[in-house]
């Protein structure tokens, strides 16, 4: 259990998908103009990551690997199957959000279906494969990664909202500033390297 908590904390803060690996940057930079939309998108990402990770783990272990049902190395189908699972899950989330909170659905607009191509989702699954996690660890990794991405995007949205009132040079306004801020946040998170709760 401690190992799972360790993975959750690691993927949420120390190996933060957005600030340490810089995954999911496109939506990260595009949606972080207001805290409300960032909050909604972050929650959706947690949900999608938490669900697709274990499903992709099962696909990888039982279908694609040599020890799976087909007994041959089908890993060349990995990309297609993973992205298909992610696309379907996002479709599901879209339907759920539309029913439960039409206001959020409208404010997120095009960015909800764009979670499908959010590199953090596919990247998370590919990292899970390369780190050879087991089932429980994949769930912890998915939820932790999603949570970390959520924290990152809400934080930068808060900063960007405030920085609108500062005197930024015209050519740097908006996107340029966002890049600079993300870089600095990334540097700050680098300070968390090496924290290990199990071997404390």
């Amino acid at each position: 259990m401690g190992e799972l908590a360790n993975i959750f904390i690691k993927s949420a803060f120390i190996e933060n998908l957005a600030l340490a690996y810089f995954l999911g940057m496109c939506s990260f930079l595009a949606v972080s103009k207001s805290v409300k939309t960032a909050f909604g998108l972050g929650l959706a990402v947690i949900f999608v990551l938490g669900i697709t990770m274990p499903i992709n783990w099962m696909i990888e272990t039982y279908l694609l690997s040599e020890n799976g049902v087909f007994s041959t190395d089908l890993t060349f189908l990995r990309f297609i199957l993973f992205i298909a699972v992610i696309a379907s899950m996002v479709q599901l989330v879209e339907m759920v959000v539309e029913k439960m909170s039409p206001a959020l659905y409208n404010s997120l607009g095009i960015f909800l279906p764009l979670i499908t191509v959010n590199c953090a989702i596919l990247g998370g699954s590919l990292f899970m494969v390369s780190k050879e996690y087991n089932f429980g660890e994949s769930v912890a990794f998915g939820l932790g990664g999603g949570f970390g991405w959520f924290v990152a995007i809400v934080a930068i949205a808060a900063i960007r909202e405030k920085i609108k009132y500062s005197n930024v040079p015209p050519a740097m306004r908006g996107l340029g500033m966002a890049f600079l801020l993300t870089g600095m946040m990334g540097m700050a998170f680098m300070g968390l390297m090496g924290i290990d709760f199990v071997n404390f």
Binding site: P169, A171, M172, L175, G176, F179, L180, G183, M184, M190
Partner: peptide, 18 residues
């Protein structure tokens, strides 16, 4: 390290838009 890529692109954007 990763953050430096952010800084380089930020400067690139600044230069491009200027």
């Amino acid at each position: 390290q990763f953050p430096s890529a952010m800084f380089v692109i930020a400067v690139l954007i600044w230069a491009h838009r200027a």
